[in-house]
Design a protein around this nucleic acid. Sequence first.
DNA 1: ACATTGTTATTGCAATTGCAACGACAAGAT
DNA 2: ATCTTGTCGTTGCAATTGCAATAACAATGT
Lengths: 152, 152
Amino acid sequence: MSPAPDPRQRAWARFVVAQALLFERIEAAFGAAGLPELAWYDILWVLECAEGGRLRMHDLARQAVVSRSNVTRLTDRMEKAGLVARADCPEDGRGTVCELTARGRALRAKMWSVYRKQIDTLFGQHLGVREAEMISTAFERIIDSTNQRKST
Amino acid sequence: MSPAPDPRQRAWARFVVAQALLFERIEAAFGAAGLPELAWYDILWVLECAEGGRLRMHDLARQAVVSRSNVTRLTDRMEKAGLVARADCPEDGRGTVCELTARGRALRAKMWSVYRKQIDTLFGQHLGVREAEMISTAFERIIDSTNQRKST
DNA sequence: ACATTGTTATTGCAATTGCAACGACAAGAT
DNA sequence: ATCTTGTCGTTGCAATTGCAATAACAATGT
């Protein structure tokens, strides 16, 4: 899919390559700074956005776009590192809530300083404001369309 | 990074989420059709684009945006499946060339029919032509910028 | 109350990946 | 020719991931 004739397929091709290259660079930057991988950042960020810094595993998985079993292993390791804490859910005997710790918040802030620089250098630097806004709205449409299969 | 104030950071946030969701769906579609994973498609496509359907491992890894060791394992499995064939490189005693087989071409075509539908449904469907063109050029700039560190 | 069905989080296991180290060869200097 | 230095492709090993199966509980209907 290199000389794709259709502009939409062409856009997809660039999207795929850019994605691979950028994540590679970002992971390298985290590694060079002695910080954990991007997946941990995502978990920390989703938790920090949540009411009370806590979320049930199911919701955490969905919002971080990670498989159910994967979020279990991920939070296992993060709990060992003292970044999150798990506790039984009082409203649902099956459930578990995952809560951000102070240490988790601190690490996310530290990771963000590295992440932000990378996003700017590798991505934002090459976009005009109008372009960035267009990409936001377009991708938001795309994201919403994948979730439309349960509402109504 | 949800209510990101900066439009570029907002664009990045959507980019990350869309990427995860779309790849998840596409892999699921391949799996449901009894086809291999997307990584195999990428390798097949890069080879098919190459002169003579053959490429040295190093170039294959770079063009498919895969680590060196990973392309070795990937082509190991694909060779066992009869999709590619490896041979020593005549011009360089260290090198290995990886060549697409007829079976490999056939599988790529079959995978494309599934892949194409997914790209259209999940991605292209939600973009205007102007938007698609803008995304293509913007991401091309981004891709090019990551490679600029060796020329000159 | 009870049985049935669905959901939640976890785990075992196999498969995949990244990282560092390796052997084989090429390229350039002396 | 020899010696260093760098590159190519592969592999061992540890870590990570996906998939299917599981136990525990919720929700619904009878």
